[in-house]
Design a binder for these strands. Structure first.
Lengths: 203, 203
DNA sequence: GTCTATACGCCGATAGAC
DNA sequence: GTCTATCGGCGTATAGAC
C-alpha cells in the first residue's frame, strides 16, 4: 500500500521517469499542489493510471523518493569515511558533496533543505534521525574526542557548522546568492570549520 | 477576496482567535492539512461559516497572518535601530528578540523559519525581500562600511550569521536541542558574531 | 449575524473492458 | 499492461432561511 511495488511488470525506466517528475514537481510546486496528473504529464506518460503500475499511490512515490535520497546520501558518507581519516577531512568531503549536489542536482538539495517533509510524510522519522545524519553527528563526536573540534555539545557544533553550510546553500537554491554554489565553497567551508575547530589553524 | 474584510461587523477578539488557531494549526499540521473546520474547532466557534464574516477565504487568513508577523518584526527592528547605534548592538538586539520569540511564541518562529510559505502564498514576495529582512541586510552593510564587520559580500555575511542563529533556533523548535533557546543564546551569539566581525575582539 | 443545507470542483483511487 | 469511465470523499464556498 505504502510502498513501491516489488515486481513492476514494466520498464524500470518509467519508474525513474515518474520519480524524477515527482521530485521536480514536489520541489517546484510542493507536494500538495502536485496532482498525479501533473506527474504523468511531466513524466510523459500517455495515461495517469500507468503510475499505479509502479506505485500504490501518491504517498508511496514520495516515500520512495525520500528513501532513495537518504540511502544514497548514507552510502556516500560511508564512502567518505572510508577514504578520509580525520574529522576535518571527512567533514570537508561532505561539504564538497553538498556543494556539488547543489550545482548538479539542485532538486535533491531542495528536497533535503527546503521541503517540509513531515508535512506530507508524517510517519517518516525526522531527517536528523536518519542514518546519514546520525553518521555526521558521530563524525563530529569523534572530532571532539580526538581534539580536532572544540569541546562543546555535539548537537550545537552540528547546528553551527551546518547552519553556515546549509543556509548558504539555501540562498544559492533560492537565488538570493546569485552565483553557483561552487564559487562560495572554499570560503564557506573555512567559516564553518573555524567555528567548531579547536584552533583556527586553517588561517 | 484575498484580504481581510475591512469592516468586520463583529467582535475583533474572534478575528484574533481565528488567526491564533490558524497559526497553531498551520505550524503543527501544515497549511494543506488544515481545514476551515479544524480552525473553527480550535478557535471554539460554533460554526465554521463564522470564519467567512472575518475572512474571504482560507488563503486570506494565511495572508493576514504573514503580514501581521512581518509587520510586527519590521516595527521591532525599527525600534531596535532607534535604541542602538552600532551594527553589533543592533544585531545583538535582533538576536535577543529572535531567541525570546522562540521561547515565548514558538509558533511565530516556526512560521518564519520552518514553514515553506511560498507553497501556500505563492504570490507573496519572499521573506528576504520583505522590509524587515531588507533592514537587517542594511544593518550588515552599515557594519561593513563602519569597519565593524569584515569586508565580504553582505548577502554572504547575512547567510553565515543567520545560518548559525536560525539553525540553532530551528533545532530548538524541533526538539533536537532540548533546552530553552535562552540557554544557548550567549554562546550562539558569540559564534555568529565572530564569523563576521572584523576582529574576534569579543573573546 | 447565525446557522443549515447544499452545491461544486478537484483529485485520488477503483472497476472493468480490451 | 493499457486505457476509459467513473466512483467517492473531502473541503471550500455559496445560498438562503431565520
Amino acid at each position: 500500500m505504502e510502498q513501491e511495488k516489488e515486481n513492476p511488470q514494466t520498464n524500470p525506466e518509467i519508474q525513474d521517469k515518474i520519480l524524477l517528475a515527482a521530485l521536480t514537481l514536489f520541489t517546484n510546486k510542493g507536494y500538495f499542489n502536485t496532482s498525479l496528473n501533473d506527474i504523468a504529464k511531466v513524466a510523459e506518460l500517455d495515461n495517469t493510471q500507468i503510475i499505479y503500475n509502479y506505485f500504490a499511490n501518491k504517498h508511496a512515490i514520495a516515500t520512495t523518493l525520500y528513501n532513495n535520497i537518504l540511502d544514497n546520501l548514507s552510502i556516500s558518507i560511508d564512502d567518505i569515511k572510508r577514504r578520509n581519516s580525520t574529522a576535518s577531512e571527512q567533514l570537508r568531503s561532505i561539504v564538497d558533496l553538498l556543494f556539488k549536489l547543489t550545482d548538479d542536482a539542485p532538486s535533491i538539495m531542495h528536497f533535503l533543505l527546503i521541503l517540509k517533509i513531515r508535512e506530507f510524510l508524517p510517519e517518516q522519522r525526522a531527517l536528523n534521525e536518519s542514518p546519514a545524519f546520525i553518521k555526521i553527528l558521530k563524525i563530529i563526536q569523534t572530532g571532539i574526542r580526538s581534539g580536532e573540534i572544540r569541546n562543546i555539545d555535539p548537537q550545537l557544533a552540528n547546528a553551527y557548522f551546518f547552519g553556515v553550510i546549509n543556509n548558504t546553500l539555501r540562498m544559492v537554491l533560492n537565488g538570493t546568492l546569485d552565483k553557483k554554489a561552487d564559487s562560495y565553497q572554499s570560503q564557506t567551508w573555512l567559516m564553518a570549520w573555524n567555528i567548531i575547530a579547536k584552533k583556527s589553524s586553517v588561517f
